[in-house]
Design a protein around this nucleic acid. Structure first.
Lengths: 209, 209
DNA sequence: TAAAATCTGTTGCAATTGCAACATTTTTCT
DNA sequence: AGAAAAATGTTGCAATTGCAACAGATTTTA
């Protein structure tokens, strides 16, 4: 598989390589703004969970990305013309490493033996990120709240035989993630239950039939 | 800048490297299905334009991605559980190269001198792809048709001083790209004109104020 | 160049969705 | 433990959006 490598090992390699890297620990609910201020900086979440969020002019919050262990983020991934303010908020205590992309991509003058391994690992991380983004795009292109919910649920029950699962985020956050109104989402969840398409108890969902 | 390299040069390097690569030419309106059937295959569009499209159960067409020169695509970028059918359609005559990711990521036994350059170039291409996907996600998270249109327009007039531009795709395709109903979109375009927020003549748009 | 296909433009109507405003429950903080 | 904050759940109403069904314009194809 294309992403079966060990992030801890990768971090260790980075620390031993010629590349200058930073390690930071961020407490739950704190903002990891620093990691999204330098162009060409790439961050990797080593531990914990975080959300990349945005507020629009009307105050609507959108969760652009939910980040977990192994996920990459940083301003390098956004167009220079981005006019919205982006924040990365730690949802749990987080450990983050960051480095400048040029240090990885440029030829290593000291021909350190880790340099090329890093590139390969980064390629794997990027592919993983692109896959996640495609899942997100698939969700967002759904035309109705019902379809968005069904799509989200089916991504949670990856193995098609597992029909019961727990929603890993709050319903408030889920609405922001699906980019829909929370009350409209709750109403739709109710309909899905009434039509016996799902069974719901708290954040435990079962897909019926 | 992080993506200022020459795709032609890259292609030439690929051909001289130890990596097995394929080159194919596809005529306008033909389907490039072959390029999205093998897991771990990465394709690069060297010339032309293409759309990555999807049809849902209700027959709604969605343009997942608009591909142009330098863009990467392939099944490697989608989760294995994807149940929707994806097609890549050439919108113009296209030239595509493809190779197996493992051939790039694994160590080169013949230590050919291009191998590492390829990795670096791929990293650049992947970052470019992630940036494009973020632009798409930004668009799709917009809560209304009006906001989606304004967001799309502003991405076209990247340089904020340029207020006039041409929409590079048909309005029918634009609706599929924004994942909205075409007639509702036309109605909104009309409102934007009536409120003098834009001026529109065919596919030429001017942002007023 | 004529016919076919696609794209653009428009409208009425129905369905979906967002908004505002609550009450209730659960979680977090001191 | 008690207060404060956040999350869940609900509803009526208004606004937005999608759908269907056209007509006309433009482009492609035979």
């Amino acid at each position: 598989m294309y992403c079966d490598f060990n992030i801890k090992e990768f971090t260790k390699q980075l620390q031993n390589s010629c590349t200058k890297i930073q390690t930071k620990k961020i407490k739950k609910n704190n903002t990891i703004t620093t990691y999204i201020k330098n162009r060409n900086q790439i961050c990797i979440l080593v531990n914990g969970k975080a959300d990349l969020i945005k507020y629009d002019i009307n105050g609507n919050k959108t969760i652009i990305e939910t980040l977990k262990e192994n996920d990459t983020f940083g301003e390098i991934f956004f167009p220079m013309t981005t006019n919205s303010d982006l924040f990365v908020i730690a949802k749990e205590d987080c450990e983050v490493i960051s480095f400048i992309f040029d240090d990885i991509s440029k030829k290593c003058s000291r021909t350190c033996k880790f340099h090329e391994t890093l590139k390969t690992n980064l390629l794997n991380l990027f592919i993983k990120k692109i896959v996640n983004q495609n899942i997100r795009i698939e969700l967002l292109t759904k035309r109705s709240i019902r379809e968005k919910l069904k799509s989200y649920f089916s991504s949670l029950s990856k193995n098609s035989s597992i029909k019961t699962f727990y929603i890993p985020i709050s319903y408030t956050d889920l609405a922001d993630y699906l980019s829909i109104d929370r009350s409209a989402m709750m109403r739709e969840l109710k309909s899905l239950q009434e039509e016996n398409i799902i069974t719901r108890k708290g954040n435990k969902i079962t897909l019926n039939k």
